[in-house]
Write a protein that binds this DNA or RNA. Structure first.
Lengths: 344, 344
DNA sequence: GGATGTAATGCAATCGGTTGCATGTCAAGC
DNA sequence: GCTTGACATGCAACCGATTGCATTACATCC
């Protein structure tokens, strides 16, 4: 870095380096380094003196140089499929908080549900992080394994054998939802499905099929892709046309859109149609308040970073498959099946 | 980095370095470096050969080493005050996208509205980024100036002279909201205020006061701190008690909470009370759909990164004060003032 | 045929830290 | 008084790149 020539650094008094601190405090660079990283090796007096000088100069160890020398960057990366989906912000926040407490910086990547983008991001991150968390990864298994071989890596909502993963197990909640609907008298229901490549989607679909079969309900699938408020809204018409009396949506956002779409079609929820969401990220903010499968997404972020840390610290690199439980939260968007659905 | 001893790197075949590529292709390290960074300096033949070897070995230039040597890290940091506030995800997404296209990685920081945390994050980031974006920073001016002196820095919704900033100017929208309410016959309104340290809050409060004075409306302020669905909900009772007939909330989240609080108190919106939000981040998803001041928060993220890039590339380090306009979006949460408010 | 220029490549210093090993000092032990 | 060892610190190599300044080889020109 030729600061005087390229002018890039003109904006700042050049950040003080370890050498300057060393010269001024009359010790070697090694001693300054140790004053920060292993003060117990030095006499108290020396540590005090060095730190005083460092303070006065505003010296802060250069992370990049340290990383080059030690191989520890103090950074981790978190890649999500869509920041704007309300499922992720709480997860991001929790992950962030945990990383923070461990003194780590977090790179955030947004793949926009696109495997190619995800891989691009991964390529940029891999060289400067100590660990990775992939939430709802859309990458294919082989790719993921390659990255997992290079760095500690934790998956969220993706189930690959041999790789540590945190799975939000919505099956119990979804099963409870089916039971709930069955008890309310619904016989025909729709599943408003999400991305085919999504593990969560597969898991939910399977849980619904299995439980519905057990109780003799008929299930049809109507897609909402990509999952969003808008695609949920658009799904209302085909759903109503299909004659079902209730729907379980891939996630809350889709459910919320569905509610809006139903309202636009003058279908009263819950009187003549019932809607169940998934994730419980909207709380009571929908109208009517949404019956949904609560998924503790914040915990997923927290746990994932925790597992990542323990992997980074050499611990338990054995495979871990951490399951987070789910349960049904009944609010006001579900009710008894109407005696008869009006045709269309 | 003593790989053989500390065992940290055991998980991977050690990443190939420039030296290995050099040795195998029979050239010097300098040549390998140039094959990647300035191929036009080399003969085509050499470039081809070196790249072939690099490919076979899976060599990728080490970002950290490069950063140390050149001072360009290829990273920027974005610090927001609350990831979970729906105002930010679209902003983050847009910022991210822009940075991505420029080949930059984004560190995300979450200050949780706490200046001390914000400063901690800043300290961790500053050494490994080429530029910073602070959205709704709560840091004091002097601190911000210090960081701005060290790195290109762009503020969002914070107005500090001499520092490039992107301001979402909600004054016109808020003024329009007052006009709207005045025309509907409201004479007494409440402002449900946000963080005192927030520039947006100050700006909105001032715009409301000014416009209300002009039209002879009486305004009271009721706090909702920190701004959230819950604090908005809790504000409903004192607002109703105060006898006003309409409220403008600091942001949509507070407005949404307020709607819920009012519903719980059996106050009909918009028949007997009108609510206006700010930011327009919830679209039509509230009940009733919220009249709000649209603020184009995604654009703010995009523009901020754009300005940051131009600063980083040595361009226009002169101060820029970029204003984004706002306008009122009338939906269904506002209506004519009730003839008489029931007491309490 | 010697001076001159140019294109391709190598040498070695540098970025700012960390760390294994050597050195020096001083007190305790015999 | 000499050995021994613990403690505090310094030396210098190293992490993996980049880059200014040679150096080399060859073609061109007069």
């Amino acid at each position: 870095m030729k600061r005087d020539s390229d002018g890039r650094e003109q904006r700042s008094e050049i950040a003080p380096t370890i050498s300057q601190v060393a010269k001024i405090s009359g010790v070697s660079r090694a001693t300054v380094s140790r004053a920060f990283t292993r003060p117990e090796m030095l006499s108290e007096e020396t540590v005090r003196r060095v730190k005083a000088v460092a303070d006065k100069l505003g010296y802060v160890p250069n992370q990049v140089a340290r990383a080059l020398s030690t191989g520890r960057h103090g950074n981790v990366a978190l890649i999500v499929s869509d920041v704007a989906n309300p499922f992720f912000p709480p997860l991001i926040r929790a992950a962030q908080l945990h990383a923070d407490r461990a003194g780590l910086c977090v790179f955030l990547g947004n793949s926009d549900e696109d495997p190619a983008r995800e891989e691009l991001l991964l390529g940029r991150f891999i060289g400067q992080v100590e660990g990775l968390v992939l939430a709802s990864s859309r990458l294919d298994e082989a790719q993921i394994r390659i990255y997992a071989a290079r760095r500690p890596l934790v998956l969220i909502n993706r189930d690959i054998e041999g790789i540590t993963r945190v799975l939000i197990d919505t099956a119990p909640g979804v099963a409870a939802a089916i039971t709930h609907l069955a008890e309310l008298g619904h016989r025909h229901i729709a599943y408003v499905s999400g991305p085919t490549t999504s593990w969560s989607n597969q898991q939910r679909r399977n849980a619904i099929r299995k439980e519905a079969a057990k109780r003799g309900l008929k299930v049809i699938a109507i897609p909402a892709r990509p999952p969003s408020y808008d695609t949920g809204r658009l799904a209302a018409a085909p759903i109503v046309a299909s004659g079902v009396t209730a729907a379980i949506a891939f996630d809350d956002l889709v459910a919320q859109g569905l509610l809006a779409g139903l309202a636009a079609l003058d279908v009263d929820v819950p009187k003549s149609f019932s809607v169940v969401g998934c994730d419980d990220v909207l709380g009571e903010t929908t109208y009517p308040p949404l019956t949904t499968v609560s998924a503790r997404c914040a915990d997923a972020g927290d746990v994932a970073v925790g597992l990542l840390l323990s992997q980074m610290n050499g611990g338990a690199s054995g495979e871990i498959r951490h399951k987070l439980n789910s349960h049904l939260v009944v609010r006001a968007s579900t009710g008894p099946a109407p005696a008869k659905r009006k045709g269309r």
